[in-house]
Amino acid sequence: MDLIGQLSQQLGVDSNQAQGLAGSLLKLVQGTVKEKLGAQAADQMGQAIPEMQGWEQQAPREGSGGGGLLGGLGGLLGGQGQSGGGGGGLMGALGGLGGQAGEVAGIVALLQRFNIDAGKASLVAPLLLNFLKSRLDPKLVSGILTVMPMLANLGGGGNTPEGGGSQGGGGLGGILGGLIR
Rank of each mutant, 00 (worst) to 15 (best):
L129I: 10
N130P: 05
N130G: 03
F131V: 00
F131C: 00
L132M: 14
L132Q: 08
L132D: 01
K133T: 06
K133Q: 11
S134H: 04
R135C: 02
R135W: 05
D137N: 06
K139Y: 11
L140T: 10
L140M: 04
V141A: 00
V141G: 00
S142Q: 15
I144S: 02
I144A: 03
T146Y: 08
V147P: 12
M148E: 10
M148T: 07
M148Q: 10
M150N: 02
L151N: 09
L151W: 01
L151I: 07
L154I: 08
L154R: 12
L154T: 06
G155L: 00
G155W: 00
G155A: 01
G156I: 05
G157P: 06
G157Y: 03
G157S: 14
G157Q: 10
G158L: 11
N159H: 03
N159I: 13
N159G: 12
T160Q: 15
T160S: 13
P161C: 03
E162W: 01
E162R: 01
G163M: 13
G164H: 06
G164E: 12
G165E: 15
S166I: 04
S166D: 11
Q167T: 10
Q167F: 08
G168A: 11
G168M: 10
G169L: 10
G169S: 06
G170H: 12
G170R: 15
G170Y: 03
G171D: 10
G171H: 11
G171R: 09
L172D: 06
G173E: 05
G173Q: 09
G174H: 03
I175Q: 13
I175T: 14
L176H: 04
L176I: 15
L176E: 05
L176M: 15
